[in-house]
Simulated scan of single mutants.
Amino acid sequence: MINMVKMKENDTKADWMNLGNKFFKTGNFQKAIYYYEKALENSPNNSVAWSNMGVAYENLGEFKKEIECCQKAIDADPKDSWAWYNLGVAHGKLRNYQKAIESYEKAVNLDPNDKTAFFNMGIIYTKTGNYVKAIEAWKKALNINPNDLKILFNMALAYTKLARDGEAIEIYKKILVIDPSNVNSRNKMGISYLNLGKMKKAIKCFKHTLKNDSKNEIALTYLKKIKNDYKGKKFNSNLG
């Protein structure tokens, strides 16, 4: 997304910016870049033009050029949180994970309500294997929007990676209160119950999934596995 800053009429710089934004919205990123460059000829310290051009390059897969543009935007306005955010995106795409984290930290320091920056920071932490830090970032994002299903789901997965399935289950329960038809969360909750040895509750989760999706492969696979594991054995109904 670009910064759709309102520009004044009868302003050449504004005309170039508005044209750049117009072509960006239609997906013509090369044309958008051309007009952002024209805007910068008249106003080389226009941080919004630099940032928008960077995002246009991002959409073309040219992440190194996006970094150059974002850095120019930051040079023009070090307090431009949006430029720091986009710099984090570009570094993340290039797997410069530490630089991505540093950029997102700058973004949220300038704009503590930037939920997406906190979310992206968490994703980057998972790529480095630091699930504890990822959870910390997502908790801050949830302070902004407690019912964001994408953040909740990723946090639950992180808890599972840390073998903290009990905490993962509590999050899946919250997701299912918000969205009872969320089969992915119900299946994941079943798997977490299995990890804790609570077979009865796991079976209940998978069977509930099949009520909504009778051909769900994950639920069918796990129920078959449970059945095979206990074949010829007396199932202990006290488990879970």
Rank of each mutant, 00 (worst) to 15 (best):
N21R: 10
A219M: 07
K72E: 08
G20M: 03
N130G: 02
L176R: 05
A107I: 07
K13Y: 14
H91L: 09
N130T: 02
F206T: 14
K140L: 05
D11R: 05
R186G: 06
L194W: 09
K161D: 10
L162S: 09
Y57K: 03
W82H: 11
F206K: 14
P112C: 13
D11K: 05
L152P: 02
M53Q: 09
L110C: 11
F153R: 04
G54V: 07
K215Q: 13
D229S: 14
N21T: 08
N46H: 11
S81W: 13
N96Y: 06
Q30I: 02
Q98F: 03
K127H: 06
C69Y: 00
A219D: 13
D114L: 05
V5I: 03
F153M: 05
P44T: 10
M7R: 12
H91C: 12
I169M: 04
E9R: 14
N212W: 00
T221L: 14
P78G: 11
M4V: 10
L60C: 07
V108T: 08
Y57A: 01
S181R: 00
E41D: 12
A83S: 15
V177M: 13
K99Q: 15
K174P: 04
K150G: 04
M1C: 15
A137E: 00
N195S: 15
K31S: 08
F24K: 08
N109H: 10
K227L: 14
M189E: 13
S43M: 13
K198F: 08
S214V: 03
V5A: 09
C70R: 09
I135P: 06
D179E: 02
K38N: 14
S81C: 15
G190N: 12
R95M: 11
N143I: 03
N45M: 12
K25Y: 00
D15H: 11
D80I: 01
S237R: 11
N154A: 00
D114S: 08
K140Q: 11
Q30R: 08
E41N: 07
K173M: 01
E217G: 05
A156V: 09
K6V: 05
E68A: 04
S192F: 07
N147H: 06
T126P: 03
E136Y: 01
A117Q: 12
A76M: 07
E170F: 01
E68T: 02
N228W: 05
K31N: 08
K72L: 00
A134C: 01
M189Y: 10
L87K: 02
Y193K: 14
L223Y: 07
